[in-house]
Amino acid sequence: MEETRILVTGAAGFIGSHVAARLADLGHGVLGCDNFNAYYSPALKHDRVAALLAPRQVDCVTVELADAKQTSSLFEAWRPTHVVHLAAQAGVRHSLRDPGSYIQSNLVAFSHVLEACRQQRVQHLLYASSSSVYGARTQIPFHEDDRTDEPASLYAATKKANELMASCCSKLYGFPATGVRFFTVYGPWGRPDMAYFSFTESMLKGERIPVFARGELLRDFTYIDDIVEGVARLLFKPSLSPEGQPGHAVFNIGNHRPIRVLDFIATLERVLDVKAELELLPMQPGDVPATCADTSRLREWVGFAPATSLDEGLARFRDWYREWISGDRTSSARQAGA
């Protein structure tokens, strides 16, 4: 039986570090890569590697996937059987300020990964899409077959382009590919630019928090462990075309319980035992009014759908955050389930 060799791109990132750690715990050979860019503090990325990957003997090499030669060399050296492509330039609002970084990281780099998968004849490519592809839809929940041709931001447009590129290459070159549409992921070792993280920092400092659309937006907050479980199950169950050939499919991974941002803040207040001071602001360009995942396809295919409650997930994040800011990286790794 061929050894399973998994490449996880973006392995120093929030989702990538958790996925790489879980796959290693399952006994698979895992190599991570990341470009360690400065979209947010690279120190946090190195902390994730030290706390989540190093104890599991998972290396995370520095690679710029937007460089075709670096990508090709990485694949030739590791020869992965499976690829989990999570490297990307994240952030809806940032795409309004620095669109070029999204073209390079989300389109150019992805084209290089697709070509390397073709050259290496990988058994399965699983890649990160986003709930953002659904655009400004107000009819919820979102199903994978809903229209996704009106993105509200460049970030969303690049993620939709990823789905089209992967579908095309899967059909042309005969390797299965799966896109996973993540819905507002949160939890330990998260991204500092995400609301739950930045709100926690500001609330504990007694600072006001900016609340866009006056807190009326609906978001489908999904705990990181549920995301990881869905990815791990999908990776080893690629979809087939109606003809029984390797195919392309997309799956929502969300908590399918949308929560109003003001109610989310109320939950965070209870968890932190701190009253938030709000700065109510209008809706921002690129934002969408609601996200909510229909997870019936995921449940039917792999027998799982996210179910962690917001109270439970935020409490775990709180415990991790307190340890992390205290400088106790060992304890914060334990809080994250490492």
Rank of each mutant, 00 (worst) to 15 (best):
residue 117 C to D: 06
residue 143 H to E: 15
residue 189 W to D: 08
residue 147 R to S: 07
residue 306 P to V: 03
residue 294 D to A: 15
residue 301 W to L: 11
residue 129 S to T: 00
residue 83 V to M: 05
residue 79 R to C: 13
residue 50 A to P: 10
residue 220 D to Y: 01
residue 305 A to W: 13
residue 52 L to K: 03
residue 30 V to F: 00
residue 249 A to F: 04
residue 136 A to S: 12
residue 224 I to W: 07
residue 112 H to F: 12
residue 106 N to G: 03
residue 266 A to I: 01
residue 292 C to L: 02
residue 137 R to T: 09
residue 306 P to N: 06
residue 211 V to T: 09
residue 162 N to R: 10
residue 304 F to W: 09
residue 326 S to C: 14
residue 211 V to A: 08
residue 198 S to F: 02
residue 75 F to I: 04
residue 159 K to V: 01
residue 124 H to P: 01
residue 142 F to W: 12
residue 10 G to L: 05
residue 150 E to I: 06
residue 116 A to E: 11
residue 204 L to R: 15
residue 330 T to I: 12
residue 128 A to V: 12
residue 162 N to W: 06
residue 97 R to H: 06
residue 273 D to W: 09
residue 107 L to H: 04
residue 258 P to W: 13
residue 293 A to L: 08
residue 290 A to H: 02
residue 306 P to F: 02
residue 33 C to V: 08
residue 290 A to T: 01
residue 180 V to N: 10
residue 153 S to H: 04
residue 328 D to P: 12
residue 245 Q to R: 14
residue 44 L to W: 05
residue 245 Q to S: 13
residue 125 L to G: 08
residue 325 I to K: 15
residue 321 Y to L: 15
residue 256 H to I: 05
residue 92 V to N: 08
residue 111 S to R: 13
residue 12 A to L: 15
residue 197 F to M: 08
residue 111 S to C: 12
residue 79 R to M: 13
